[in-house]
Amino acid sequence: MNVENGVHDPHYFVPAPSRWPIVGSSGLFCLALGAAFAMNSVSAGKWLLLAGAAIIIWMLFGWFGDVIRESTHGQYGKQVDYSFRWGMSWFIFSEVMFFGAFFGALFYMRVITVPELGFDSTTHDLLWSGFKEAWPVATGPKVDAYHAMAPWGLPAINTALLLTSGVTLTWAHWGLVENQRGHLKIGLALTLLLGATFLGLQAYEYHHAWTEMQLTLASGAYGATFYMLTGFHGMHVLVGAIMLATMLGRVLRGHFDKEHHFAFEAAAWYWHFVDVVWLILFVFVYCI
């Protein structure tokens, strides 16, 4: 709240007219239409999806390229920096709420629907009298048998990996503020490596679950929440890793100094957020 503290840029930076937003909208439109077509077996669907993805990638390069150029040309003053900080915080808040919807679904199914379907009520007696309430296996009256994911194998290793990556990232940040570039580079590279290993293990876990444990998206309440929560989390790790890779690239080109490095911090905030989501997920999806 810097109005109260008198922070005002003499000229708050207002960007020039830009083509990137409309490019992004066209890309998202192609993705949306393409996905709807593809899901309903219209053959144009996959081409639209492909085009949409290409356009989005083009937009990301162009847009962030502009931002980086503006930043390195010193066009962002103190007040703009505050705006970025507020903006990123609120964006992360919106992400928290997105995960909240899926956690809400998980809690509701575990606490209300599954017990109710298994309890001797009229619904149970008339419709699903054979069904026994059980978690995590066969959670649903008409679900094929599957095995549940045990927490203390890969998932625990993954937890350790992500937690360590949070530490290495903070260590890299120290390197940045103390102007020790080597230390910063190693920290970032280590974080990326840990993130990539996490994603690799997660992919392996999915493959194993799907092919050998018969655990699929269709595996009742457990399968649905398991895949949707870990899946969206994994996508966020991927995005976070791409952000960090970009930061590493910029560090290698000599960007950032101890005062000006909000892009780095934003990526770090995001990474820590993804970390915290994992911890909650580890407890509620894998352990309990």
């Binding site: 599954v114 008409k142 009742g220 309440a221 649905a224």
Partner: peptide
């Protein structure tokens, strides 16, 4: 998935 279908819980 079975978020909103009772057959799957």
């Amino acid at each position: 998935t079975h978020f909103f279908k009772a057959v799957g819980g």
